[in-house]
Design a protein around this nucleic acid. Structure first.
Lengths: 171, 171
DNA sequence: TTGGAAAGTCAACAAGGCTGACATAAACTG
DNA sequence: CAGTTTATGTCAGCCTTGTTGACTTTCCAA
């Protein structure tokens, strides 16, 4: 709202913001500290189960897209299949995830949360949603819109696909 | 700006936002994907030097607060001294960080970037600032304010101190 | 039908978290 | 001054989660 001087040279309503290195540094540190807060509550829960963030990520995206394949999960998570496989194996062994051989293509494994897995998912996402909700409410609706707008710009373009996707990029 | 119906029951201008689980899920995934983008460019640079994110974090905060102590860094980074020490030791050995015994309190070590260390810091923070600046400009000034407001709410309260601090919580 | 690509698994290694124990020096306290 | 606390560093060992390389099974297309 402040310096909008040299604006509107760029088609859309974007102002040519004068951003000092210090303002940008604040943004960088905000991301760092906020991400820590963002993961703190689930981390505590996971610790009780002997799991880590990798397990949380797998559980989250399986819940979002039931029946998704390992390969699809790989493209979302951006890790190697060997790394994901280890996490997935423990989740299957512990009875949180069900891995079903594909009917059309028997090379594929389709992933589903079991009742037990869905239970942990609820505990994790509830904790994370509570913090997110509190932050959104305290900051107000316009802030939420801005938050989402900036984060979306910060993503790698290929990832926006997974983000915008309502879910189910499987099958 | 949308549903502001039941608002203003809460003293300040906060509306009692109706946030669906799906809206919150979007926020959660936005954090996940954006954080990946946020760290992607520095990660590439660090890889060339054989360093990781832990080194980046140390370098960042030493640069922000030259002369800071190990203990202060510990409270900012929230890791164990053993973990930080390993990183710090390699940085000192490689001549990126200078560790000087305190004059007032000789138990303390005050940390400074060397010329070489400052060089890497510039490369890392320039890459990260560029992405942050592009995102800020594309999203616009109001979005930036909202971004910061939400992130600040998401932090653990103890961490806000380090965030708001203009720097130099040393000595 | 055969050769390559794709999906998944196994083995081994590295980074960077962690805990616990212990050493040293300096500072503080009664 | 003796004893305790504080700041830092180090060693050993463990865990999670990333990596690469080699291998199997399955599918598909030439």
């Amino acid at each position: 709202m402040a310096d909008r001087n040299a604006a509107n040279l760029m088609g859309r309503g974007e102002s040519l913001l004068f951003l000092t290195d210090d303002q940008l540094r604040r943004g960088i540190e905000a991301m760092f500290f906020a991400y820590r807060g963002f993961t703190a509550d689930p981390d505590r829960i996971l610790q009780e189960y002997g799991y880590g963030r990798a397990h949380h990520r797998a559980i989250h995206f399986i819940n979002r897209s039931p029946g998704t394949t390992v390969n699809n999960l790989l493209s979302i998570l951006g890790v190697t299949k060997q790394s994901l496989n280890r996490v997935l194996r423990t989740l299957v062994e512990d009875g949180l995830v069900d891995s079903r051989v594909g009917t059309r293509d028997k090379r594929e494994r389709h992933l589903y949360l079991t009742e037990k897995g869905a239970g942990l998912e609820r505990a994790l996402s509830e904790a994370q949603r509570n913090r997110m909700r509190d932050a959104f409410r305290a900051a107000g609706p316009e802030a939420v819109a801005g938050f989402r707008a900036v984060l979306e710009q910060m993503m790698d373009p290929d990832m926006k696909r997974h983000y915008l996707d309502g879910g189910d990029s499987s099958r």
